[in-house]
Design a protein around this nucleic acid. Structure first.
Lengths: 192, 192
DNA sequence: CCCATTATGTGACGTTTGACACAATTGCTT
DNA sequence: AAGCAATTGTGTCAAACGTCACATAATGGG
């Protein structure tokens, strides 16, 4: 099997199933792209035109605020990412998406995506279910932020996504946790 | 036109259009319900079986944590609400949905909803677009929590959703802002 | 392999927040 | 209208956090 996103889409079947035909249709409209560390997929102020699927590598979403960078999400292999607000509502992006590791990604132009939705009700159903999944994750993240204090948030990263610490700098992680770099450093010192 | 959710669905057309036929199909599978202040639509530990549409009144989503209540969302007229994780994945709910004002709501059972998705690709497309909208709102809310300090968060509520202060207690609002009741009280004192 | 650059740790200090206790106010019920 | 319960405000104090400054460690390019 030549490299393609089809294998990934199949692995998603527990979240949102797709027939072989729909998967192939989806895969024929994508192109591969190599990204270097630091490359931007979208910048604040631009209009986002694609959705991406990370084959290898990692990306972050962040926005500038008061001379600092606020990291709002980290994305790794086999995840979709896009600036949905910009893509869907044709407005300028209010956050950046940047590669933090070199790698390769698949991309779909939004015109192709919308066309696929119209061609295949199965792909639309896939989109709905995928968005349900995304929404639920986002809602959980939201509750997590409000329910836990900084130390608890760091602890839960340690236990539930330890790989994050291997692939993301502590400076980036600190703003994701909603605290300063120094506070994160001190939390790490006083934990086992 | 007799009371029905159809009028509301039409008003959503800028977010997600529905034909007259699909709207009517959607509306024929709903039932009306009267809720009193304090009624629960879902409790933690139960399985959520419905989606609701608020015609009049207001609801909140909250979870218990360390003897306190963390409010994670407030919902008013003409908005859908459900515990999507519980509804979709058939797991027990990890947060409550409760009416905070008396009113009337429309409800759809999840079996009906899933059946409607299968009957009408237009309703599936509506679901996808509605979820896109929900995801974007949730994502913005997350960024807002990380970007602003408590005082800025309260300020932005004042300017962008002043009605929230009329319909939600300050105790409830404080946990939504991620701060204690007392801190919110002091922020209010030192602002004009 | 060395040096420059970046990332991370730490000390000091002022500010903010949370927790607890209690007072004042509001709102609802009878 | 009175009285009770719930909500909101406030005083005090300790703990947590942010900021600034600088030290140390790790990384990467030439």
């Amino acid at each position: 099997m030549k490299a393609s996103p089809e294998h990934f889409l199949q692995s998603l079947s527990h979240i949102a199933p797709l027939s072989d035909e729909a998967r192939e249709l989806f895969a024929t409209h994508t192109t591969s792209q190599i990204v270097k560390k630091g490359d931007y997929l979208v910048r604040e102020g631009q209009r986002c035109q694609h959705i991406w699927l990370i084959e290898t590598g990692a990306c972050r979403a962040f926005q500038h605020h008061n001379e600092k960078e606020i990291n709002t999400g980290f994305y790794f292999e086999n995840t979709f990412l896009t600036n949905l607000n910009s893509l869907r509502n044709n407005v300028t992006a209010d956050y950046n998406i940047q590669a933090i590791e070199a790698g390769t990604i698949w991309k779909w132009h939004k015109d192709n995506l919308f066309s696929l939705y119209q061609q295949s009700s199965e792909i639309t159903a896939f989109g709905r279910q995928w968005l349900e999944h995304l929404f639920i994750e986002q809602e959980k993240h939201n509750q997590w932020l409000k329910r836990h204090n900084p130390e608890e948030r760091y602890q839960s990263i340690l236990t539930t996504q330890p790989e994050l610490l291997q692939r993301v700098s502590l400076t980036q992680l600190s703003s994701y946790l909603g605290i300063s770099r120094e506070t994160l450093s001190r939390i790490r010192r006083r934990l086992p």
